[in-house]
Write a protein that binds this DNA or RNA. Structure first.
Length: 578
RNA sequence: UGGCCCAUGGUGUAAUUGGCAACACAGCUGUUUUUGGAUCAGCCAUUCCAGGUUCAAGUCCUGGUGGGCCAACCA
């Protein structure tokens, strides 16, 4: 198994790490502090893995620390199960926040005090306008907004109203607290943004203590500041929020409200997120997939969520390697799914034990093999790692091979079994197909073959009298019919048939782009050793793909289910397409 | 009819800060192989366009073009 706790792979340089390194060199921040700030309103996906590796990676490599902070300022969307899931995913990825678990809700009292400070000094006011009125007076990107009639309300009055908002005197939506900045600013976010809204909702942590909740913009920078975060890394869509982030910190600082011992303001720096070709990343749409039953749940192996990938058999090491290779920039990007698959294969190839599994079997009878004989053949567990040793595989007169490994009329380039042709059974014997038996429908039901006793283990036979060595082009896998273990295999493919399912005209719904063959469930026949498969153990079904045991399995009852993590590269299939 | 950001192969990221465009994936050749896997080797770019500065520009300047973000009491 790959060492999933080892997270010290060399990290690629990127512009963010350069900034951190420079701040450390100049002594501005000898100990960098970063944070991963998820909102607990869904499960983490592969995009979050980038942010996690980035923030925790910086803390690890620069002798700093990384906080886990739940951005829980909107109780109507957030749930405890998401909090638990997120923590599990981060640990699985191989990172540890130690003591540093925080919640924006830990700071509700401090935030409330700061809001009062801003009101007192004329930097915030309670607005009685409705949502519609506020929208109408905000202006547009090309025209300035106009002031609220409540904008110049005396500070004392706002203070009093704000206290009443907190006390629960008003229903949802009746009033908001707004920052008094600039209704004509070209940045719409600076046109007196809302700081607090009334929400009579149960919060997963603070229960019903509060009925007013701070908005993201008034909570995030302040939380960073309280925690002593030095580099607040976020994605590009928050770029326009940066002036606001800085405005709040600056004003509170000017008013003497700085947290104890803070000599620097946290710095927000943005980076570009990525999309994976053939998948969707927006939480909203992922939630829709789950709610509409398009997938079995957040952990359906076709989902780009971390829970799903874990279940599918993707290793944390391959995920870390992937985000490292993808890198960081200030651009929106679409990564080819092939790069991700390559990273998965690269790790799995090193760590997966090999097993023989026949999907879509066809029976092979070896006519010259003794009826009741069973031989134990020795198979290598992992040619990439000798320490994984070998195992015994039973061989007998009746076997199964994959239907696609036989062709009656084979083209010249077909190296597998054909009528009159010879092939190597991996770790078995060389066999030659003498006869094809079909049913009334013309379907092949059995192949009658002979074997060469001199090829035991799949070895080359000795040279003939003239010194010529017989050769065989192909090697195929097999299972002994009498010993075969029936299993279920779930063959997963990309969820969407198009590269960018969310793209194009708005009318074009991503639902139309779902790949109807994203899940094919079938039965297969496996070698006996597969009965010992463990949950979380990566396996390679030789010549087929990488698989792992699914949690739906019931081993005592003999019910074994395997998920295909990713196929093997198949240059034969590629050549056939041409 | 605004402000801000971005532009290097099919994809993504680099380029000693003005000095021979590098790495990975994909693709294509070939080598090797008891997995048509893996391995190994080779091929694959006038840096969006037009000007300018300079001995020298992916990098600096000017002007275009293309893309993205911003008008939730979401984050």
């Amino acid at each position: 198994m790959s060492d999933d706790t080892k997270t010290n792979e060399p990290a690629e340089e990127n512009f963010l790490r350069k900034i951190v390194a420079e701040d450390q060199r100049t002594g501005k921040h000898a100990v960098p502090v970063t944070r991963f700030p998820p909102e607990p309103n869904g499960f983490l996906h592969i995009g979050h893995a980038t942010t996690i590796c980035l923030n925790f990676g910086i803390a690890r490599d620069f002798g700093g620390r990384c906080h886990l902070r739940f951005d829980d300022t909107n109780p109507v969307k957030e749930e405890q199960r998401y909090i638990d899931g997120i923590k599990q995913d981060i640990r699985w990825l191989g990172f540890d926040w130690g003591e540093h678990e925080y919640h924006a809700s830990d700071y509700f009292d401090q935030l409330y005090d700061w809001a009062g400070l801003l009101i007192k000094h004329g930097y915030a006011y309670v607005d009685d306008q409705t949502l519609e009125q506020m929208r109408a007076t905000r202006g547009t990107v090309t025209s300035p907004g106009s002031a609220s009639p409540f904008r110049d309300r005396p500070a004392e009055e706002s203070l009093d109203l704000f206290a009443k908002m907190k006390a629960g005197d008003f229903p949802d939506g009746a009033k908001v607290l707004r920052a008094k900045i600039d209704m004509a600013n070209s940045n719409m976010l600076l046109r007196d943004p809302v700081m607090y809204r009334i929400l009579h909702a149960e919060h997963p942590r603070t229960g019903s203590d509060w009925c007013i909740y701070p908005m993201y913009d008034f909570a995030h920078g302040e939380s960073d500041w309280i925690e002593g975060v030095t580099h607040s890394l976020c994605s590009l869509e928050f770029e326009a929020h940066r002036p606001l982030y800085e405005w709040f910190v600056q004003k509170i600082d000017e008013l003497g409200g700085a947290p104890e011992g803070r000599t620097h303001h946290p710095r927000q720096i943005e980076f570009g997120r990525f999309n994976l070709s053939g998948t969707m990343m927006s939480k909203r749409n992922l939630l829709a997939l789950v709610q509409e039953g398009k997938v079995a749940g957040w952990d359906d192996p076709r989902m780009p969520t971390l829970v799903a990938m874990r279940r599918r058999g993707v290793t944390p090491a391959s995920l870390r390697n992937f985000v490292n290779i993808v890198g960081m920039s200030r651009r929106h990007k679409t990564i080819e799914i092939a790069l991700f698959e390559n990273c998965v294969r690269e790790d799995l190839n090193k760590v997966s034990q090999r097993r023989a599994v026949v999907i879509d079997p066809i029976k092979v009878v070896i006519t010259n093999y003794p009826d009741d004989q069973v031989e134990q053949m020795t198979a290598t567990n992992n040619p990439e790692n000798e320490a994984d040793g070998t195992r015994e595989v039973p061989f007998s007169k009746e076997l199964y091979i994959q239907r696609e490994d036989f062709m009656e009329d084979a083209p010249r380039k077909f190296f597998r079994l054909k009528l009159g042709g010879e092939v190597r059974l991996r770790y078995g014997y060389w066999i030659k197909c003498e006869e094809v038996i079909k049913d009334d429908a013309g379907e092949i039901v059995e192949l009658r073959c002979t074997y060469d006793p001199q090829t035991r283990g799949g070895e080359n036979p000795p040279p003939d009298e003239e010194g010529n060595v017989r050769k065989v082009k192909g090697t195929i896998h097999w299972v002994s019919a009498a010993h075969a273990l029936p299993i279920e295999v779930r063959l997963y493919d990309r969820l969407f048939a198009t590269d960018n399912p969310e793209a194009g005209k708005k009318k074009r719904d991503w639902r139309e782009n779902l790949n109807p063959e994203s899940l094919v469930t079938t039965t297969a026949l496996a070698e006996p050793a597969l009965a010992e498969a463990q949950l979380g153990q990566p396996l390679q079904f030789e010549r087929v793909g990488y698989f792992t045991l699914d949690a739906d399995s019931d081993k005592p009852a003999g019910k074994l289910i395997f998920n295909r993590t990713v196929t093997l590269k198949d240059s034969w299939a590629k050549q056939q397409k041409k």
